[in-house]
Design a protein around this nucleic acid. Structure first.
Lengths: 160, 160
DNA sequence: TGGGATTATTTGGGATATCATGGGAAATAT
DNA sequence: ATATTTCCCATGATATCCCAAATAATCCCA
């Protein structure tokens, strides 16, 4: 299973082009997947993923009550989604809408988070990162308490 | 899996013509499908789709009790539907009925939602989008547990 | 282990193609 | 005959393609 990991910072040139980091392109190319970007529902950043995630949203909408608020939310995700075509050098063109939404100027930070990645204004991402780290120090590590995470048998990690 | 995604804002010229966004035309042309428009049952917008969706509605009606209220509702959709012919440049002419229904004036916003798209008065669409985004922030994202493991991008759940 | 050489990747810019839009003229309908 | 629709071509804006330069990462041998 190959994942989007690590962070990369690339320049947005004056034509609005932005290189997708080569390791991220490699993940997509291995699967022959096109890249989709959409506006995050909860944060001022863009989300990148492959088609399977888009397909899940489409399927979910069709199985839900079309009058529900949840469907409207999912439709908002799809309506902001674009299939990004990359040029020969692996760059995509960011629409003005995307740039405005994430408040990007001349640099973009890619943050790999597993099955998807995010694109942030670098300064904003770092703010968020330090905030998350200090929260972790004072509040502990909430993520490790969530269910489903694999731990080797017998690894109680000091917690009950 | 080609889908209607993203949003486009096009002008309705003084002859009443409106360009269908090239990516949407491409989806239909790949399938050699004509375009159908009909009035939304639930919102002040127009719905656009290919013939298979119209066929689904017809099939649904035939499988239901022909005296039920639902059937009457679905028949309303069909009776408002028009097959749109496009000119050489990919434009369609909206009937006065359609323009009145969606309260359009000189701009139309196309919002792709997967297997269909909608046409809105831009200002009205944005209101609705804003509402959906603030709902997502307060209420959280819809939890899609369809076919298992979907998690919204960004929700790493503490796992990498 | 160091450092120059080689390759991969990102960035830049000019040429070309695509697309939305506008308007005139021909065709069709009322 | 008059209004409306359809067809055709023009234009400007913008995206795409293609090639080249600059930067960064990797390799290889001393």
């Amino acid at each position: 299973m190959d994942l989007f990991l690590s962070t990369f910072e690339n320049r947005i040139d004056k034509k609005g082009r932005l290189s997708v980091p080569a390791p991220f392109r490699a993940v997509l190319e291995r699967r022959r997947d096109p890249l989709y970007l959409f506006k995050s529902l909860t944060e001022p950043c863009l989300e990148g993923c492959g088609p399977e995630r888009i397909g899940q949203i489409v399927d979910a909408i069709e199985s839900m009550d079309s009058l529900s608020a949840e469907v409207a939310t999912l439709q908002t995700m799809l309506s902001s989604a674009q299939e990004m075509k990359l040029d020969g050098e692996g760059r995509m063109m960011l629409s003005g809408d995307f740039i405005d939404f994430a408040e990007l100027d001349d640099m973009a930070l890619f943050a790999g988070i597993g099955r998807s990645f995010q694109i942030w204004l670098p300064a904003r991402y770092r703010e968020r990162e330090t905030a998350a780290r200090s929260r972790a120090k004072t509040d502990g590590l909430p993520s490790l308490r969530l269910g489903g995470a694999y731990r080797p048998p017998g690894d109680t990690d000091g917690r009950s």
